[in-house]
Design a protein around this nucleic acid. Structure first.
Lengths: 195, 195, 195, 195
DNA sequence: GATGAATGAGTCTTCATTCAT
DNA sequence: AATGAATGAAGACTCATTCAT
């Protein structure tokens, strides 16, 4: 088997197992059994259990990061709201496509490795920071009411995480995604009260 | 030492360590060292590592559960919104008081034990269900606009989780809590757009 | 079993096995089997395979070091030659007593650990340095002919090592030791030629 | 590449690595990387790791063996002492030329393989025996004083080993070799005492 | 002849749990 | 009740060797 293919095959087996059992409950034995390879073969492709987990998480973080485009507020651009929705749809599509990786990310918990903990932390901080900036900008442009951008950014990130969690662990089908994104945006923009 | 006191002392040591290192990175050695007891003593009070973790999480789940009162819509009661805010403040106060337990709950990850995974899952499902019911009720009473209660319930739970996460891991002081709760409620009720 | 006893028992089993099979061919399994303990028990007493080997070698180096007394050339002291012989007898007695440790030391080879390699190296350098100093002093005192002290120090150390090797691996009995020491001293002092 | 050349190229790479890292710390990976060959290629030329090590050591043992000529005591021959010195110079020259092999031999330790251990052992025993015979002969010819030939043979072998060790690991230059050999011979013949 | 992906036996090490004192 | 020495199952990782291409 070609090296790249084998590597991908191992990655994909590991992905599924990590997603279902979590990092600690997953053993190298689980992975090599699922990938039908020998113990040593695993270590040709990955330096350690940590390393393969890292590779998987990196993949997803990279994809999410790339799915988010900075909102362009020049007049020539499409409506900021439209761009926001596009961003969310792109992210949603990544999370949906890579639902196992998303499970891993959403149920990731401290304690594997401090470098690793920090990487995840930094990633979420970066996302929070982007949301916060967007809110602050909206406030300056008087599109968004006065609020505490830090708290609201957390609300928005939390909403996305939790909804994703709900959907992925209840295996929603892709068709509903746009509806879901709309619902979240609507909620964030206008709240729940009847006007 | 009285049995209950010793048990509590072990619990409280374990709580702090679990909160800071996570379940897997915490060893029985860590706990008995911090509690200044012998290895055997630990097993007099708790059946296993799982058991003490379970006891800790149960504590918090119980407190949170008790902090949430079903909203009373009889005329004699206070405003539903006021009741909602009181609920959130009570929960916030529990989370704040038991910040170590909250850390444990917020960074809990799959893989300790399937019974355990399910317990956490059920707990959140129950919370989601309560929020969902409240929203549905609000819709019936025409206080709340037409929306998908499942999704919105996730948004609200996610908001609360993520904001709590933010606050606890950045050690906010208790004084701000009411402000934070207000901000979340305001966000959920009226959204972000300027009217 | 008392901790110290157990530790010593493990040490002594390991000593024999290391002496006979060498560091690499000795496995932890060999040691625990010989000591009749469980795998985990070994690690209560020693951090690693390296660590127990280190402890053993340290023991011997310490004993050898202590057996060597600096030669006192004040008039009040016994003859330097007598002191030299006493030193050699004391060292010989240590090597004989701890013949397994001596086997380990004499057949030690690079490659276990660079820190470790250096420790052995330093030890021998220190011994060489002491011999060299003694020779230089003898030259100054005009007891010893002009020679290259570095080379001669190596000859003397080499003689001692090789003779020890011969004796230990052919299990000589202790009674001959004084005769052997005398022979070496005689050799070093007057050489082989008939005058 | 011609078969012999490739074989030699592998041998020479292995030689250097074994010399610097020792047998156990040297992996097949180290060798094939240094020799720029594929893993399988190594096994075309050598049956195993042991086998290549064996080949290297054999080389040196053969050269040393050949450098030593039995001392001819017929009247027509040169002085026995001159012959002795020639022997030592020839051996020294081999050790110097093949300093990596010499490093390997000098730091060889038990545990690779019992056949192998025995081969080294036998080699040294053979050398010891030759020295011992020469001494005994010298005693019969009344050139050498009465002594214990076994012990003295060990002293001489040990001296040569240790001095070689010193020189090789401190990278002496070839010019000093004759001086060193003279020093050792002088030491062995006349000892250290001022007459 | 050459390659290098694959193998799997073998090692070290960890740690939750037990139990005699 | 308390102790802590002992346990051993289980896990991660290494590396000499093989073999299909």
């Amino acid at each position: 088997m070609i090296k790249t293919d084998r590597r991908n095959s191992i990655l994909s087996c590991a992905e599924e197992i990590f997603a279902n059992k979590g990092y600690f409950a997953t053993s190298i034995s689980d992975i090599i059994q699922s990938a039908s390879i020998a113990r040593g073969t695993f270590y040709i492709y990955f330096d350690s259990k940590k390393a393969i987990f890292d590779a998987l998480v990196d993949d997803l973080l990279y994809l999410i990061d790339n799915a988010i485009k900075r909102i362009d507020i020049s007049n020539s651009a499409t409506e900021p709201l439209e761009q926001l929705k596009d961003n969310m749809l792109r992210v949603a599509s990544v999370l949906y496509d890579k639902s196992n990786l998303t499970k891993i990310l959403l149920t990731y918990a401290k304690g594997i490795d401090s470098d690793f903990d920090q990487k995840i932390d930094s990633f979420y901080k970066m996302i929070l920071h982007q949301i916060e900036s967007a809110i602050s900008l909206g406030m300056e442009m008087e599109l968004i009411r006065i609020c505490n951008p830090k708290i609201i950014a957390s609300c928005i990130l939390g909403s996305i995480k939790e909804v994703s969690h709900s959907l992925i662990f209840n295996s929603y089908s892709i068709e509903h995604i746009e509806e879901v994104v709309d619902e979240i945006i609507q909620f964030a923009l206008t709240g729940l009260l009847i006007k």
